[in-house]
Write a protein that binds this DNA or RNA. Structure first.
Length: 361
DNA sequence: CATTCGTGGTA
DNA sequence: TTACCAAGAAT
């Protein structure tokens, strides 16, 4: 049966709809670094690693990190044997650093309690650190070829449009999941999951969906009503407050800069930072600087400000600088030569601070 | 159920 | 320049 002779999607069974999507997938397959080629056996380690990296992260952002990780740590055993700090350095810049900490914990659990093999059932996968409903289903389907309903942002969008679901996210999530489950086929679970996500990523896009290219367009209720681009609806998010702080760019006589490790949990947990005052909505005053300065010296303010936006607030960091005299090696933190900063677990905001300091100091 | 948790690309 | 957005999870 060709696409041209197929009946409208609404008159088809879900198996027939799935077959049409899989046909589209085979004709439009993307070559991604973590994707097994046709005929290749999927490697659960690579599937897992890619799915963690892709959480709330675009393909172009994740790809170079995936290549670096798999080259340096080709197996879950290798990753489990590595120190957490090595993972944090390698993860720096990718964001959501709890993912890296959970990645490490998960690798060690798989090696220590599962004999180095990932479980092939959703419930067992769900129990592992950093693996939630989406990732458990994705690994089940893609790595093990077992039936599972994969629901990510792409699938939510495709399903909301197909069924013209107008209730807003996130409350409507369970409904979208149920609808998605009714269409999940028994055949080619991994390809179907990736086909749904590819469809959302390349055709059923958030803005200006390419309905003319969609294998499901004739059965799409939202397109029929002319509301496809408005779906899925989402509740308005609270606007981001602006927090402010002052960073201390402190050099020692050797030309090394003082850095420190952030708390193991929370924002940028376990990552390296330039010492600073607390980040609060009020501009830090002189007393705050005195209270937070790593050592008591005279500070000179650098011109300008470092701006950065996190997931839930804007940050404006002023930078002050000073030269530490000899004998200050006992401060809380570590002296790092400027030319060795690339070996540190510096998140993007701190890379901005470093660049700003080097440009203006 | 709402909040916390990054980053870079895009319109 | 701002806001939105991306293959979510943990609490």
């Amino acid at each position: 049966m060709t696409d041209d002779s197929a009946p409208p999607l609404s008159e088809q069974t879900s198996e027939q709809a799935a077959a049409r999507l899989l046909s589209w997938y085979d004709r439009n397959r993307r070559d991604l670094p973590w994707r097994a080629k046709p005929g290749e056996v999927a490697d659960p380690y690579r599937v897992w690693l890619s799915e963690i990296m892709l959480q709330q992260t675009t393909v172009p952002a994740a790809a170079p990190y995936f290549r670096a990780f798999t080259e340096r740590w080709p197996t879950v055993h290798a990753l489990a044997a590595a120190p957490l700090d090595d993972l944090l350095v390698a993860w720096a810049g990718l964001g959501y650093y709890a993912r890296a900490r959970n990645l490490h914990a998960c690798a060690r659990t798989v090696v220590d309690r599962h004999g180095g093999r990932f479980p092939d059932e959703e419930t067992a996968l769900l129990a592992l650190p950093g693996i939630g409903a989406y990732t458990a289903a994705a690994i089940t389907a893609i790595a093990f070829g077992r039936k599972a309903t994969v629901v990510d942002g792409n699938v939510e969008r495709v399903i909301a449009r197909m069924f013209a679901v107008t209730d807003p996210l996130p409350a409507v999530k369970p409904t979208l999941r149920r609808l998605a489950a009714t269409r999940t086929p028994d055949q080619r679970p991994g390809d179907y999951a990736q086909a749904m996500m590819d469809l959302g990523a390349t055709v059923c896009t958030p803005r200006k969906p390419k309905c003319m290219l969609c294998p499901w367009s004739d059965g799409c209720a939202a397109r029929a009503s002319g509301i496809a681009e408005t779906l899925p609806r989402k509740l308005a998010k609270a606007d981001k407050p602006t927090r402010r702080g002052t960073a201390f760019w402190l050099l020692n006589p050797d030309g090394a800069v003082l850095l420190r490790r952030r708390a193991e949990r929370g924002l940028l947990g376990g990552m390296t930072e330039v010492p600073s005052t607390a980040w609060e909505e009020t501009t830090p005053d002189a007393a705050a600087l005195l209270a937070h300065q790593p050592i008591a010296v005279g500070w000179r303010a650098l011109p300008g400000v470092v701006r950065h936006t996190f997931s839930h607030f804007h940050l404006e960091l002023g930078v002050v600088t000073a030269q530490a005299g000899a004998g200050w090696h006992a401060v809380d933190g570590m002296w790092v030569p400027i030319d060795q900063l690339d070996q540190q677990a510096l998140p993007s905001v701190m890379v901005k601070v470093v660049r700003h300091a080097l440009a203006h100091a």
